[in-house]
Design a protein around this nucleic acid. Sequence first.
DNA 1: ATCTATACTTACCAGATGGAGAGTTAAGTC
DNA 2: GACTTAACTCTCCATCTGGTAAGTATAGAT
Lengths: 138, 138
Amino acid sequence: MSAPRPAPAIPSHVHPWPTEVDPRVEALVNEVIGRVADKWTMIVLEVLTEHGELRFTRIGEFAGGISQKMLTQTLRQMERDGLLVRTVHPVIPPRVEYRLTDLGLSLAEAFCGVWLWAEANIGRIEAARAAFDAAKAG
Amino acid sequence: MSAPRPAPAIPSHVHPWPTEVDPRVEALVNEVIGRVADKWTMIVLEVLTEHGELRFTRIGEFAGGISQKMLTQTLRQMERDGLLVRTVHPVIPPRVEYRLTDLGLSLAEAFCGVWLWAEANIGRIEAARAAFDAAKAG
DNA sequence: ATCTATACTTACCAGATGGAGAGTTAAGTC
DNA sequence: GACTTAACTCTCCATCTGGTAAGTATAGAT
């Protein structure tokens, strides 16, 4: 879709489509969701919501299957976005603890609905897939 | 999105950490995150929620910045998952309309919290990023 | 005969993703 | 002096993602 969306040079009090939101807001929201809604971010969010403050290695254990590289990267991004705080205790060997901020906790809460939906509807999705595949084959 | 991740069976003899996670929970996580919660699915979901039944090209315009390939792929997957219905009108030139199912609408509703969160917290995230980057630079 | 419109499909390819595994740091322990 | 430990950090490399652009199909209009 190289076609750029029709120029929104329309005064904001005139709404061609009553339900449409400000494209700039929409773009920002898309960007945020694109960043925040990746697999490991959500999993780390869930792990920290469940277990509270945790150390690096412990998060990796709970997350399951994440490489150190990805864990570091995910935690850094979340820290940068203000979703968690990273506390370094200046001891040897190093001890670093991660804890969700209020912002992070509120995001986890917002995602809660999606988790519940997923749990409740996995069966329906699988049924739909089976039906779709059967229809395509038959 | 449709990442054919060959099941993170986690060859524990290679893995940096032992896994204590229930494999069924992990499978659920992969299902949800990997297939339903990707960027374009969420955006298409939002577009269809806001505008109701739409044609292919129109969805692309509203979504903004999606390629035909990705749009086709996303719509097919959502159809397969039972999130939307695809209605082909046998006319020339072709006319295909997409509409969310009840399942799709319920997912959109579940995501609503996330959208609201994103809208409400964009400022906070950007401030956190600016602060983080400033701290790193200075 | 050519053009147009719509909804795809397909091939190609650059760039992003992410895993494996080794290296780094510094203080205490054997 | 080697070993250990935690939390990285780095490099290499295979795989995956997703964009671009071209092609397809069809009927009516010019």
